[in-house]
Amino acid sequence: MNKNFKKIILVALILLILSGIIILCTIGFKKSTMYAAGTRIETYIPKGYNKQDIYDIAKDSFVNKKFSIEEVEKLNQVVVIKLQNYTQDEFNKFKTSIAEKYNIDVDKLEIYEISQPTIRISTEVMPYVLPVLLLTIFSLIYILFRNIKSENKWNILLKIIGILAIIQGVYFSLILIFRIPFEIYTMPLSLAIYIITLIIYVNYINKNTVTATK
């Protein structure tokens, strides 16, 4: 690959990561309904309910609003809709539709609006920090010993650290820039990318070392 092209790509990636850092420091991640502060609309349906029906009613009542449905208890009698903003009319429509669907008197329908605190992203991220740090340290020690005789051993280590940092930086920057909601799978996906990058790169170094030896 042309050296200038490589440099352009590198500069572009660094700019992308810097933009991500600026967004992180100013407005932060966009949280999904699971993590963002909002309201839980808890509805008690004595006869039991069908999740798809609840989804359809909620979609029809809270037009163009993002929401999630949680099934509470194992008796299938309590359902929770989590969403951020809605009007009283939308709430009333939801209440009436549920009452109609399950033949419950609207006044007797047990439905509660409960405010929900925001969930800090750091509580999701922190459990991953120590294992990933240890994985990196032990892997670097292993790679150092494997390439102990190589003159480029320090370059190899720096390259690995750089590649891992850039790929993770790009991943989170894309999430931040394109306002992709932080979801339950965001951290596992980041971990998967991290480990797979590490394995592929270590395999690549090994391949090159073998070819050079040949």
């Binding site: 459990p127 120590l130 994985l135 032990f138 480990i195 270590v202 090994n206 073998v210």
Partner: peptide
């Protein structure tokens, strides 16, 4: 022998992650 590095890194993953306080990890 050629795959030893990949096996070694996977083993590090096992050792490091198995001792995490979070069960899901």
């Amino acid at each position: 022998l050629k795959s030893i590095d990949v096996f070694a890194i996977s083993l590090i993953v096992f050792v490091v992650f198995s001792f995490s306080a979070m069960t899901s990890i």
